[in-house]
């Protein structure tokens, strides 16, 4: 088991060193390997179908041996952007900012201004949650309006034979293998999970959504 993990670690480093990696892990030079690197983003209906869930993961390919030391960066805000009138401009944002072991959440609220800079919408606090420790107590906050908040390390939910994809793109293979290898197996991410009542997101039948990381 130890040997397997070592091999996996080495293989992952080699792959990561080669080029950009899906889903959004290490996607661009300015963010790769840093605390603002978004690895994945999900939006789906909650177990309580009156609610919507947003997941933003950062800092991909964290091996178990490094997960205990992994931290959210207090200079990085993760912002869920929600367009509810179809123009791909955010009408609402949900912001997550870490401070001293807690993740503070704001929104959903109309941002002061849309675009690539943000200030924290301190007038619209959603709640906060203790950042869960690796293999420690799992902290979940449920707010008075039924929103749920989580921040901490989780298994990377992404799965893909990225190694074979790389071989195909490089011209060294003509197709995927009959049995694929999940490049992301056994690795962790720093995860932010937010569940809010759909009624807080406007009345549109379809939302356009995306995740951003912003640095101070």
């Amino acid at each position: 088991m130890k040997i397997n993990k070592t091999i996996l670690g080495v293989g992952t480093l080699v792959v990561a060193g080669m080029l950009a990696i899906a889903a959004d892990h290490i996607d661009a030079p300015a963010v790769q390997g840093g605390t603002a690197d978004i690895t994945d983003y999900y939006a789906f209906q909650a177990e309580n179908t009156s609610n919507m869930v947003f997941v933003a993961n950062v800092q991909g390919l964290i091996m178990p041996s490094a997960t205990g030391a992994a931290k959210f960066d207090e200079n990085v805000m993760v912002e869920i952007n929600i367009d509810n009138n179809g123009d791909a401009v955010e009408d609402l944002v949900i912001q997550a900012v870490p401070r001293d072991g807690k993740m503070y959440f704001f929104g959903p609220v109309k941002p002061t201004a849309p675009g690539i800079t943000s200030t924290v919408m301190t007038g619209s606090p959603l709640g906060n949650v203790n950042i869960s420790a690796y293999n420690g107590t799992e902290s979940i906050t449920t707010t008075s309006n039924g929103s749920k908040l989580f921040a901490g390390p989780r298994d990377d939910p992404f799965f893909f034979d990225f190694g074979q994809y790389t071989e195909i793109i490089a011209g060294r293979a003509t197709g995927f293998n009959a049995q694929g290898t999940d490049t992301f197996a056994g690795s962790n991410v720093m995860s932010i999970v937010i569940e809010v009542p759909k009624s807080t997101l406007g009345s549109a039948t379809t939302l356009n959504t995306w995740a951003e990381s912003k640095k101070k």
């Binding site: 959004d24 996607d27 963010v31 603002a36 978004i38 800079t117 943000s118 951003e212 640095k215």
Partner: peptide
């Protein structure tokens, strides 16, 4: 806060 990464 100024944008670093984004993903849809």
């Amino acid at each position: 806060f100024t944008q670093a990464d984004q993903m849809g």
